[in-house]
């Protein structure tokens, strides 16, 4: 249905995408980015993402691209 790509280099781990995704498809995981930040990653096993782009709207560092 839809998916997102996260630019891991620019993410600062603010988690605004995580809390704003209506379906909780973005989680913080253990992977540490080059910026020493606990990365977020998009996990959508059941293909629930509707491409609403709330995450991208709320990302202060323009890390998220949305595909639909």
């Amino acid at each position: 249905m839809a998916y997102i790509k996260i630019d891991k280099e620019k993410c600062k781990g603010c988690l605004l995408c995580v809390v704003n995704c209506p379906k909780g498809l973005i989680v913080q995981d253990e992977e540490i980015s080059i910026r020493g930040v606990e990365m977020v990653s998009f996990q959508d096993k059941d293909n629930e993402c509707s491409g609403c782009a709330f995450c991208a709207l709320m990302c202060p560092d323009v890390c998220i691209e949305v595909y639909r």
């Binding site: 839809a2 998916y3 280099e9 620019k10 600062k12 781990g13 603010c14 988690l15 605004l16 930040v37 491409g51 782009a53 991208a56 709207l57 202060p60 560092d61 323009v62 998220i64 691209e65 949305v66 595909y67 639909r68």
Partner: peptide, 21 residues
């Protein structure tokens, strides 16, 4: 699948100095 959201053209593709959030 079409890209429906991405960085605007007039915004440079660089890391910004602003604090997280």
């Amino acid at each position: 699948m079409e890209k429906t959201f991405s960085r605007p053209k007039s915004m440079r593709n660089v890391v910004m100095h602003y604090c997280a959030g």
